[in-house]
Design a protein around this nucleic acid. Structure first.
Length: 497
RNA sequence: GCGGCUAUAGUUCAGUUGGUUAGAACGCUUGAUUGUGGUUCAAGAGGUCGUGGGUUCGAGCCCCACUAGCCGCCCCA
């Protein structure tokens, strides 16, 4: 017997799974639509060259490539020319391709959402699969920070409506990162690699990051300055780790035999509002980058976002984090990520940013763009674990089950079912002339609230027996009355929940 | 890609220092109940013990490899 599991990292979705997925997707669509976003779908498969070179080195290796077909595959002489197509890796690059292709058919400002699976040849883990859905929203054609503000508001609203109360939207800016690295004296050509290492900071720790940076032949002075800055930010993010970090700081100073004075952190973060904390963060960044051009630009853009969003609920969930760096290489401005503050899930629920250069890679024209991507699977994993789904999702697929008495009466049962369906009820006919007991048992298993028995005596009198499976009550009623009974009950139980 | 743990019935798991015929619970099927589910009672079906090799008189148990799953790391939604 061949194995019945789906391929590694891929999943079958049973009806109960689909109901939960559709519940979440429904809310996402509703909110996106309410912000005026329009739906878009693109093919699962893209030309390989469309995808390569857009995601950085790590991303490139995770692309699922499709072998050439037939004769062409046999003719291919190397691994390199054996593949010309690939499964899409995200929804942003296909969008950029669509914009470059259909620019004239689309409005000047194009707001689109897209909810489709993407594929990555990654190692599966909790909340991480090889085939998974992303729910993207993007705004094409505007470089205004209004876009960022609206995206944050929309995504924040979705999470709230799903019942999340502990998320934080982290914001950073590519230019701030550039400004910091510049201020610290790291040469431009090292910036990308440095950011990759820096992104690991909270995973591998300060010492390991410092070591890796040194291996990249970045000067001790630069590394030390950089680490000090990062640590000063970390102190407010993870108060409980403050002591540990100070120890690391001391060790670092010892290790690099630095004479610079110990960072004096007189600001007590626990006593201040998120707003105040963000202000302090801005001050620190500004001070650190000595107000160089890049730092200035990044700060002013992030400040605009905060200003625009000030009257929205999500405002207090926004956290400026100059340590946030994201892997995808096409971001040019704002960088965004949503994380949960509780410790039960460490990955991000959503990520995004501004990519003003990506569309230009497909056409002559540079068009500014910015977007957010919600990770449906991660949202579902957390909601499942926290029991955040409404209980109606477990309800039955039908309102009433019609029994089958014997071979001769099958036609009558089907006719009755048709009559009930005319009344807009979801009706299931038991698919065999089984013993009544079996038919009731089945109805009970699949949670159908009513069973409509069409037996010998009912047929003779043109009546039906209607049984409420929850209460066990049953009565013999006029055939024409059955539908309205079920409907009344259905309305009552819906208004209760 | 790296490290650790695990793999026995449909599911969750027992299985003693290696010793005859591998168990339980739940689920499933059938019956008690030829016009009534959930409760109860009785019976029944279901296993090449992940795959392959090795040690041994003898392996579910010990050793090796492979595969898959879980956790951590890297990376990411």
């Amino acid at each position: 017997m061949s194995k019945t599991q789906p391929a590694r990292g891929m999943r079958d979705f049973l009806p109960a799974d689909i109901r939960r997925r559709e519940y979440v997707i429904g809310i996402i669509k509703e909110v996106y639509e309410s912000y005026g976003f329009e739906p878009l779908e693109t093919p699962a498969v893209e030309n390989l060259e469309t995808l390569t070179g857009k995601y950085g080195e790590e991303g490139n290796q995770l692309i699922y490539k499709i072998l050439k077909r037939g004769e062409k595959l046999e003719q291919s002489t190397s691994e390199k020319d054996s593949s010309d197509l690939a499964l899409r890796y995200d929804l942003t690059v296909p969008l950029a391709r669509v914009i470059a292709q259909h620019k004239n058919d689309l409005p000047k400002f194009f707001k689109r959402y897209q909810i489709q699976p993407v594929w990555r040849a990654d190692r599966p883990a909790r909340g991480r699969f090889r085939e998974f859905y992303q729910c993207d929203v993007d705004v094409i054609g505007s470089s205004s920070m209004i876009v960022e503000a609206e995206l944050c508001a929309a995504v924040g609203e979705i999470l709230l409506r799903l019942g999340f109360s502990d998320f934080v939207i982290k914001l950073n800016h590519k230019e701030i990162l550039t400004g910091i690295l510049k201020a610290v004296g790291i040469p431009t050509e090292q910036h990308i690699n440095t950011l990759v290492v820096l992104d690991k900071f909270d995973k591998i720790g300060a010492e390991a990051v410092a070591k890796e940076l040194q291996q990249m032949s970045i000067s001790v002075d630069s590394v030390l300055k950089l680490m000090k800055f990062i640590l000063s930010i970390y102190k407010r993010q993870k108060k409980d780790l403050k002591d540990r970090i100070e120890n690391i700081e001391l060790e670092l100073e010892k290790a690099y035999a630095s004479t610079s004075s110990k960072h004096n952190d007189e600001f007590n973060f626990t006593q201040h509002s998120p707003e105040k904390i963000n202000d302090i963060t801005f001050e620190r960044i500004a001070g650190f980058t000595s107000e160089n051009e890049e730092g200035e630009k990044g700060i002013s853009e992030l400040k605009k976002i905060l200003k625009f969003i000030k009257n929205q609920y999500v405002y207090k969930r926004i956290e400026i984090d100059p340590n946030l760096a994201r892997g995808l290489s096409y971001y040019t401005g704002t960088i965004m990520e949503i994380v949960l503050t509780s410790s039960d899930f460490s990955g991000s629920l959503a990520g995004g940013g501004r990519y003003d250069g990506l569309i230009g890679m497909f056409g002559k024209e540079q068009i500014p763009a910015c977007g957010f991507s919600l990770g449906l699977e991660r949202i579902l994993v957390v909601m499942e674990e926290r029991g955040m789904f409404p209980k109606e999702l477990g309800d039955s697929s039908a309102d009433v089950l019609v029994t089958v008495w014997n071979e001769d009466s099958i036609g009558e049962s089907l006719k009755l079912a048709g009559e009930l369906r005319q009344q807009k009820l979801r009706v299931l006919v038991y698919p065999e002339a089984d013993k009544l007991g079996k038919q009731f048992k089945y109805a009970s298993q699949i949670n159908v609230p009513f069973v409509c028995v069409l037996g010998e005596s009912e047929l003779a009198e043109n009546k039906v027996t209607l049984k409420n499976m929850e209460t066990g009550e049953q009565e013999i009623i006029e055939r024409a009355e059955a539908a309205s009974r079920v409907k009344i009950h259905k309305q009552n139980s819906q208004s209760k929940s």
